[in-house]
Each structure stands twice: as structure tokens, then as C-alpha cells.
Simulated scan of single mutants.
Amino acid sequence: MSLALSAGMRDALERWCAGLVALDGAAENTIAAYRADVAGFLAFWCTHQDGPAGLASLGAVQLADMRAWMARERARGAGARSLARRLSAVRSFARWAAEREGIDVTAILSARSPRHNRSLPRPLSPEAARDMLDTVPLQHRDDWQGLRDAAVLTLLWGCGLRVSEALTLTGADAPLPPALRITGKGGRERQVPVLPAAQAAVAAYLRACPHQQAPAAPLFRAARGGALSRRQVARVMEQARAQLGLPASATPHALRHSFATHLLAAGGDLRAIQELLGHASLQSTQVYTAVDSAQLLRIYNDAHPRA
């Protein structure tokens, strides 16, 4: 955190972050991103003040100051989406500060977020997803590690789990039941049906895994017995997609996108898909209708006879 911040400002930032954990159940990575976003703005503001400034000084922020900060972030390479996220975090912190200090932070709250086009998810086709599951195990000399990676990816594609959710499963979850209770973003719980193929993939991995399973231990183990990391899962998919000639968008999270898109294409109910994905609002799930429509349009354009 910047040394330009006063002790009081640093303490306020940590108390705000602690409140996000306590009230919203925000994930550790989310908190870290918000902390960095707000700390960056506060450091900028303190520089504008020619030295450390207290929390009450936010009442002196003008719209021109907000524009100057946003221009600097743009100059540093922040895209519209990243800048919108940073501004959202700063607004949230400003509201929190206003409630405690009785200050007017209208200028901060009225700063306009940059416009950005929401990119559509880029799922894999069913054929590409199957090829991925067949190719990933070939990246390891030890069969058990290949079975492990195939099991993880089967949970992403077959159950719609986030990779972080799959990697938080423990020995107590094995053997996988017909339905898993998953705690996702914001501490929201959901019941996720487990396909027989996913149960079989995890069972095959566990039979081959050389590390002793314990109820509190991670279900998916790294080579030396520690917890498998998200980066390791991403790396093995990078290797497999290079062999398959798939684009860089073929990531672990793309398999979760594929789960939703393939369900929708098969006639799945949008509200049910929302529940399975653990989205807080239907709006987050509705993006998949655009993906499905875009795929249909491509098929139409490829197949329609032209005069």
C-alpha cells in the first residue's frame, strides 16, 4: 500500500475491506482487487493534496479530480472494463466513508463510468470439450495426474463448477454424491447435480491417487500431495489446446461457459441454469442467450444457400 496514505486512511481501508468480508462474503481475490483499486485512488488523491490526507478529505474531491484520476488510469493502460471496476470500488468506499464521517462525496458518486461493450462468453463446442477431456490426461507421465485433471475438467463442463469451487472439494466429498452443496461467490450456496460421468471420473482418480485421502484434505492433490492450484489446471489446458489447435479462449472457465451454453441449446430453462451456475441475478445468465443466438446465426450464414 502506498506510503502516501496516512495511518488513518490505511486503517479505514482495512476496516472497509473487513466489512466486505463480513457483510457480503466477498472472496479473498475479490477483496485483494478492491483493496488495490481503492488504494490506488487514495494514493492519487493524497498526491493531489501534497501529502497524507485523512478520510474526511474525500469530501473535498471534485469532479475534475475524478476525471484526472480516470485519465491517469487510462494513460497507464487500464481498459474501459478495468476502469469501470476501479470506479465501482472507489464509489463503494466513498459511500462507506460518507456514512462514518458525514461528508459529501457527491463528486465521487457522480463520476460517470466509461462505456464498454460486454464481451460474450466463448464456450467450446461439445466436440472440442470432449477432445479436451481426452487430451488433457496425455500431458502427464503419471497416470494418476492425468486422471485427476480429467476429473477436474469433467466437473467444470459436466456440473458447471468454477475451477475454484472444484478445487475446494475435500476428502469428505468423496465418493461424490448425486448432488453437491457448493458455496460460491458471495457465500451463496447451491445444489449441483453430479452426472454419473463426473462421479466415475473422480472415482477413477481416487483409485489411482498415491496420496492418502482424509476428510479435511484437498480432494485434488498436486504431485507432492499439496492442494492442486488453479494455475496448474490452466497450464495443462494451455498444453492441450495447443495440441488441439484451439484458441486461447479455451480456458478452464470456458468449460463452465460450455456447460451453460450446451444446456441452453438443449432446451434448458434459463432460471434453472441460473440456479446451477450460482448467479445472483438472471441478468448474468441471460448473456448465454446471446451466445446461443450468435451460434445459430453463424450456422445459418454458413448453411443458407445464396443465389
Rank of each mutant, 00 (worst) to 15 (best):
L155M: 13
N301K: 13
A12W: 00
A32E: 11
P218I: 02
S293E: 13
L58A: 03
A18N: 09
L124G: 01
Q199E: 08
A265F: 05
L195M: 10
S2Y: 08
N301V: 05
S164Y: 04
A248L: 15
P175S: 07
A223V: 11
R207D: 13
G184T: 05
A98K: 05
S258E: 06
E189H: 05
G54W: 00
R181P: 00
G171D: 04
L23D: 14
H253A: 05
A129L: 09
S125T: 15
G54H: 00
L296V: 09
S281V: 07
T261A: 08
L120T: 05
A179W: 01
T251V: 08
A36Q: 13
R148S: 05
G160S: 08
Y34R: 14
P114D: 01
A64Q: 14
L264A: 06
A78P: 00
G186D: 02
V236F: 03
T289G: 07
Y288M: 03
G225F: 09
C209V: 01
G226M: 08
V291H: 04
N29A: 11
A294V: 01
D292Y: 07
F259A: 02
L176F: 04
L195P: 00
N29F: 02
S113A: 12
M237E: 06
L282A: 03
A39C: 06
T135K: 15
T251G: 04
R271S: 11
R74S: 13
L58E: 01
G245Y: 10
A150W: 01
E101C: 12
R35G: 03
A197F: 10
L169D: 06
T106D: 12
C17H: 07
L206M: 10
R141F: 06
E127S: 14
R306Y: 10
G267A: 13
C159P: 00
Q49F: 02
L246K: 07
W69V: 01
F44W: 10
A294S: 13
L264V: 10
A94K: 01
D143I: 14
Q232N: 08
L87I: 03
A227T: 12
L109F: 07
G278R: 02
Y288C: 01
L282D: 05
P121V: 04
D173G: 06
V90Y: 00
R241C: 03
A272K: 08
E238H: 14
A200Y: 01
L255A: 06
Q274H: 02
R235A: 15
P114G: 06
R207F: 10
E127K: 15
F259D: 07
R15A: 15
A75Q: 15
C159E: 11
L270N: 08
R35Q: 09
F259S: 00
P178I: 02
L195H: 14
A280W: 13
R35F: 07
Q212Y: 04
F259Q: 05
P196Y: 11
L297G: 12
L42H: 01
L124Y: 02
P252V: 07
A260T: 03
P114C: 00
A203V: 03
A266D: 13
